[in-house]
Amino acid sequence: MSAGPFKVCMLGDFGVGKTSLVSRFVRSTFSDKYMTTVGVKVDSKEVARPGRDPTKLVLWDIAGRNAIDSVSANYLRGASALLIVADGTREASLAAALNLLMQARGLLPNAFAVLAINKFDLLDRWEIAPPTLTQLRRAMTVFETSAAAGSGVEEAFAAIVAGLDP
């Protein structure tokens, strides 16, 4: 396995919190003002690996879409991992996330994928029910995350690092 750096693409519908998750993970900051992403924002962070040298994650925060178009496909080239993001308060965003995952799998069959159901701090407004998450966990790694509160964010990226370097 390569020592990195590794390209990790954030995929999800608009407004699910991809930019906020990157901001929380890379800079430990959060803003509740919604600012749509145009194109892609690229960030990077060096992460520790137990018993190994640190590695670098290059995070591609791709503008929110519910399907992959040619531009997004171009952005995905060379990605080692995908962080698929859905918004727990919008059930439709989970369907979009799973659709994106299926499409991305066609382009990147070997990429490691983790699903983050974001906005865990707004749990009282969640539309995604626990049994749905139980079903999803049988097929992939799923984290409930909150970019606002920080919960689950480090864990989700740590799972990606672990998945890249088994």
């Binding site: 750096p5 080239r77 060379g78």
Partner: peptide, 24 residues
């Protein structure tokens, strides 16, 4: 280095086009 990050996993022997990249 930041520009190099844009091409992680990509073969630089081929022409590439990446529109709308927000830099640091």
């Amino acid at each position: 280095a930041a520009l190099q990050d844009l091409f992680v996993g990509i073969d630089v022997g081929d022409d590439q086009e990446i529109p709308f990249v927000e830099l640091a």
